[in-house]
Nucleic acid binder design. Structure first.
Lengths: 149, 149
DNA sequence: CATATATCAGACCTTTCCATCTGAAAATAG
DNA sequence: CTATTTTCAGATGGAAAGGTCTGATATATG
């Protein structure tokens, strides 16, 4: 199964996007998010705890508690979320799996793959949650998809 | 863990590359390949069997038996190997993991990610085993890496 | 203060992927 | 034909990712 992000990372991205579409001060709880996004509730809890530890989210216990962004949305790049969950190994590891592959000792795909990987990184690093949030609020279709009102 | 190809797929690519650097008619056995490439022997066996079923490799039992390419190296694109092991789900599935994401119902990343994914596909589909094999034989360093003589 | 509602922490179960083991079947060499 | 060398096929074991459960802890509200 070749994929890009782990499932947990997809969940994290979806949840962060969902929260970014909520009013600034509101704490959104896991029940609501797991329900709307179709993500297993306890697993989503674990996942968001990781983002709290990495200071991407802020949490509050008790009634009216839940999670919200710890910074303004345009200071959170997609890359921050990906890094928090999946790490950055994909930026350095060899496509072909050669352990000794490096720029000084490149595998046959090294430079060509490097250019593509850089583009992926650029996209993740430049695109902020705010950028995407704007697209969402500008499109009725996207709001529907994300089950937003 | 965000990666591109499964470990098994990496093994398959490495082994195919190794075989492409061998004389045309020679069958290379698993003992030699697992040894040189540092891949667990029985698992490599399973893996190469898959490639035989997909007509990418040809196998022969008994002494002097082993595996070799089933076609000439410039008719085997990297994509064929990847498809045989990991499948093509990564070409169609949503980066953010939204199940309903499609071109008619795109997620916020859909088009931007689509362009990158196309580049990955182009690279895999255009690059043949022969191309890489040429690079290898042209570079002493690469031959050493692949433990070729 | 008491109660209800939420996250938090840790143990646990399940599934998938990676890897091993065993014996059979086929092909070569003597 | 026999012995050896290889792949082939299926069952089994182990590790990691995905997912669940339980109880503890904090907080808002009446």
């Amino acid at each position: 199964m070749s994929l890009i992000f782990s499932r947990q990372c997809e969940y994290a991205l979806q949840a962060v996007l969902y929260m970014s579409a909520q009013p600034e001060k509101r704490f959104t709880n896991i029940v609501e998010m797991s329900d709307r996004l179709g993500i297993p509730m306890p697993f989503l809890g674990k996942t968001l705890q990781l983002l709290v530890q990495k200071k991407i989210l802020q949490s509050q216990k008790g009634p009216k508690g839940g999670f919200k962004l710890a910074k303004v949305a345009d200071e959170i790049a997609l890359f921050h979320v990906v890094d928090a969950i999946d790490g950055t190994e994909f930026l350095t590891s060899c496509v072909l799996g050669f352990p000794e592959c490096s720029s000084k000792n490149p595998c046959p795909m090294h430079s060509e793959w490097g250019r593509l990987r850089d583009r992926v990184y650029q996209m993740l690093a430049n695109k902020t949650i705010a950028d995407i949030s704007k697209e969402i609020s500008g499109s009725r279709q996207l709001r529907t998809k994300l089950k937003l009102v």
